[in-house]
C-alpha cells in the first residue's frame, strides 16, 4: 500500500515538473523512479503523458503560452532520455501510436515550427522520423515507404515552398500509394482551404492542433 502511494506520488510530481517547466526536477524524478524500481512504462503513461496533455489543455484555455508548451516538451524529452534505456534493457517499448515522417518542404530552410511539431508529436507517443529542413519531396516519399510511416507531415514558411506540399501529394498519387499514408500540412501561410485544395488529409494551425489532428488521423 505504501509502495503504491509512493508511485503515485512520483507520478504526480512528474506531472507537476512538466507543468512548472522544471527540467532538473523532471530528470531527477525519472532517475528516482528507476532507482526504486518503478516500471518506466508506468512513469510514462501515468506521469509524463498526463502532464504533457494537461499542458496542452492549459494552452488551449489561454492559461499557458508557447514558452510553457516548449519547456514542458523539453522536460518530457529529458525525462524520456533517462527512462528509455531502461525500457529497451527490459526489451519493452513505449506504445507507439503512429509513425511519422516529418520535414520542411524543399527549398525551405526554416525549421523551428516543424521541430516544435515533431517534439510535441513525439512527447505524445508518436515515433518521429525528422528529416530536417529543405527536404526533396522524393526523399520524403521514399523514406515514408521505407519506414512504413502512417503519417507524413510537411511544413512550409512561404507560399512558394508551400507548393512542395502539393507536389508531395501528387507524387504519392502518381506512385499509386496515396492511400497508404495520411498527409498533414502546416506552416505560416498554410490554411485549411489550401489543405482541402491539395487534398491533404489534415492541417494544423499550431502544435496543439497538430497533435490532436495527428491522433485523429491514426485513430488514436
Amino acid at each position: 500500500m505504501k509502495e503504491m502511494n509512493r508511485e503515485e506520488d512520483i507520478f504526480e510530481k512528474m506531472k507537476e515538473s512538466l507543468l512548472k517547466g522544471d527540467k532538473d526536477e523532471a530528470i531527477r524524478l525519472a532517475k528516482l523512479s528507476l532507482d526504486i524500481g518503478i516500471n518506466p512504462l508506468d512513469s510514462i503513461d501515468h506521469g509524463l503523458t498526463p502532464g504533457i496533455q494537461q499542458v496542452g489543455k492549459l494552452w488551449e484555455e489561454g492559461e499557458y503560452f508557447l514558452p510553457q508548451l516548449v519547456i514542458a516538451a523539453e522536460c518530457m524529452k529529458a525525462a524520456l532520455k533517462v527512462l528509455e534505456p531502461a525500457l529497451s534493457e527490459k526489451g519493452e517499448k513505449r506504445q507507439e501510436i503512429g509513425r511519422v515522417v516529418i520535414g520542411t518542404a524543399e527549398g525551405d530552410i526554416h525549421d523551428i515550427g516543424k521541430t516544435l511539431v515533431a517534439t510535441m508529436l513525439s512527447a505524445n507517443g508518436f515515433e518521429i522520423i525528422d528529416m530536417g529542413a529543405d527536404v526533396p519531396i522524393i526523399q520524403m516519399v521514399n523514406r515514408a515507404i521505407e519506414e512504413k510511416a502512417d503519417l507524413i507531415c510537411i511544413s512550409a514558411l512561404l507560399t512558394t515552398t508551400m507548393l512542395g506540399q502539393k507536389r508531395l501529394i501528387e507524387l504519392l498519387q502518381e506512385k499509386g500509394i496515396r492511400q497508404k499514408f495520411k498527409v498533414m500540412v502546416g506552416g505560416a501561410p498554410v490554411s485549411l482551404q489550401w489543405a482541402k485544395d491539395i487534398q491533404a488529409d489534415s492541417y494544423g494551425e499550431n502544435v496543439i492542433e497538430a497533435v490532436s489532428e495527428a491522433k485523429r488521423l491514426v485513430g488514436a
Binding site: 517547466g21 508557447l66 516548449v70 521541430t115 516544435l116
Partner: peptide, 18 residues
C-alpha cells in the same frame, strides 16, 4: 546558434532566441 540549441534539446532557449 538556434539550430544548435534545438538539436541539443534546449528548445525554449532556441525558440526565444529565434
Amino acid at each position: 546558434k538556434v539550430s544548435a540549441l534545438m538539436k541539443e534539446g534546449s528548445l525554449l532557449e532556441g525558440v526565444i532566441l529565434d
